[in-house]
């Protein structure tokens, strides 16, 4: 049985030499739901971009049993990891919802029948099946967020990695996204500042600060440690 995500001694430097990631190591088992928290600039987004090879640092990253460093694996890794970006407008660049959700399957070269089936299934999973013909740009932020998740689900990924899925949402849209995330069966790593969601949804939490993983604990125990949270720019929800 392979680990779903395995990161070992990962270091990433910006061109000016700043260490954005400094010796990061952790593993995530299949089916686990893990939170990634920490102050702005801690390196959360940079770490996420390593999980499907958009950025490459020194050290080892294995995802779904494949080495991320090897070029030959990249397309397969990108299909295995569904990356949901913070700003859905970055992810939705096609005229219609259908085109956006179909991007992954079309890129994979699937036949038309399967592309349509995948799009229908992905939209159904995020409860947006009636929106295929709509223009993404005109949807609400919460709806865009769910379409962005659907664009990764249509690739049938093993792992979902989400960057700030609840940022900028009103309470109802936030509740809808949390409900949706609870329903999805994939292994999950969620970078977020929303510790109330973490408490509700994610049993395990990684804390990052200044490019390092400073804690990897069960969520309830971590959230009780107020002094530790405060030291890393976080607040007990």
């Amino acid at each position: 049985m392979h680990h779903t995500i395995q990161v070992h001694n990962l270091v990433f430097k910006y061109p000016d030499g700043t260490r954005a990631l400094d010796d990061v190591s952790f593993t995530i088992a299949p089916g686990e739901k893990v939170a990634l928290v920490g102050p702005n600039g801690a390196g959360k987004s940079t770490l996420i971009l390593h999980l499907n090879g958009i950025l490459r640092g020194e050290g080892q990253v294995r995802v779904a049993g494949m080495e991320v460093g090897a070029n030959a694996n990249l397309p397969k890794i990108r299909a295995a990891v569904g990356l949901v970006f913070q700003d859905p407008d970055d992810q939705l660049f096609s005229p219609t919802v259908f085109d956006d959700v179909a991007f992954g399957p079309l890129y994979q070269g699937l036949p038309e029948k399967e592309v349509r089936a995948r799009v229908a299934a992905a939209l159904a999973a995020v409860h947006m099946q009636d929106y295929a013909a709509r223009v993404s740009h005109h949807l609400s932020v919460g709806q865009k967020k769910r379409i962005a998740i659907a664009t990764t689900l249509s690739m049938e990924p093993e792992i979902l990695v989400l960057d700030e899925p609840t940022a900028g949402l009103d309470p109802r849209a936030r509740r809808d996204v949390i409900k949706l995330l609870r329903e999805l069966p994939q292994t999950m790593l969620i970078a977020t500042h929303d510790l109330r969601m973490v408490a509700e949804l994610l049993p395990r939490t990684l804390v990052m600060d200044q490019g390092r993983v400073v804690a990897d604990r069960a969520t309830p125990a971590l959230l009780d440690d107020e002094a530790f949270l405060l030291a890393h720019g976080l607040e007990k929800p």
Binding site: L49, A80, Q108
Partner: peptide, 11 residues
Amino acid sequence: RARAARSGARR
């Protein structure tokens, strides 16, 4: 990046 992240191949 968002495009690259979804430019995948089936296993």
